[in-house]
């Protein structure tokens, strides 16, 4: 009986409520989606802190004097295109196309690393100018928010390397496919958080 129910999982003629338990990859995707939402709630606390503290510069440098919009635009382009190549990687791995998966993953990694390098250059430049995180409440909030996003990107890059090693050694098993799908969701969610960062922090700088 369970098996019959289960075989209805993709059958659109059967009412949704009567289709039985969802396939594992749907459940895994949903669970990871819940994690991502809780991660975004954590980011929202950082955004709230930044919004409250961004005018408290304690006589130190203001955002508009520190931020270079050209660099931010380049970072945004890197992350957006890497989101695209990451999606292509997901499609290629669903089609079990090994070559396309590796190339798309390489493009995603290079763009993500480029983003991170630009961000670290910006940070070190600011610290050298005496605008480090301990200078003012504004800068503490800035480094906490943008640094947290950068940390997520770094973790994502490590995860991507691990996933490519798993594709190489295990192949496109269901388990690896599910993990690749989770990585895809993670990377896209980071790009969504970045939209908030560049709009509120960089374009909204006063």
């Amino acid at each position: 009986m369970t098996v019959i129910h289960h075989s209805h999982a993709n059958d659109h003629s059967v009412p949704y409520a009567k289709r039985g338990p969802a396939p594992t990859n749907v459940l895994v995707g949903y669970g990871f989606w819940l994690y991502l939402l809780s991660d975004i709630i954590m980011f929202s606390a950082m955004f709230a802190a930044y919004a409250v503290l961004s005018s408290h510069t304690a006589g130190g440098p203001k955002g508009i004097d520190l931020f270079v919009k050209g660099d931010v635009l380049l970072e945004t382009v890197f992350l957006l295109v890497s989101s695209f190549t990451c999606g292509i990687m997901g499609l290629a791995s669903a089609a079990k196309n090994r070559n396309h998966t590796y190339w798309a993953a390489l493009a995603t990694f290079v763009l993500g690393a480029g983003f991170l390098i630009l961000e670290l250059q910006e940070f070190s430049h600011m610290v050298h100018e005496g605008a480090g995180p301990s200078r003012s409440a504004f800068l503490s909030a800035f480094f906490a928010l943008v640094g947290l996003h950068g940390l997520h990107v770094f973790v994502g890059l490590v995860w991507l390397v691990v996933m490519m090693l798993q594709v190489k050694t295990i192949g496109f098993s269901d388990m690896v496919q599910r993990r690749l799908n989770c990585f895809n969701l993670f990377w896209h969610a980071l790009d969504i958080v970045w939209i908030g960062v560049f709009t509120i922090v960089y374009l909204g700088a006063k």
Binding site: P23, G29, A94, D174
Partner: peptide, 27 residues
């Protein structure tokens, strides 16, 4: 066995080219 042979999520894009089109529009 069912889980092994039906990896596709309901509503997931099955066609590689169709998927690339969708991502390109989004980009």
């Amino acid at each position: 066995h069912y889980d092994d042979t039906h990896p596709a999520t309901p509503g997931e894009i099955h066609d590689y080219k169709e998927g690339i089109q969708k991502y390109t529009i989004g980009l």
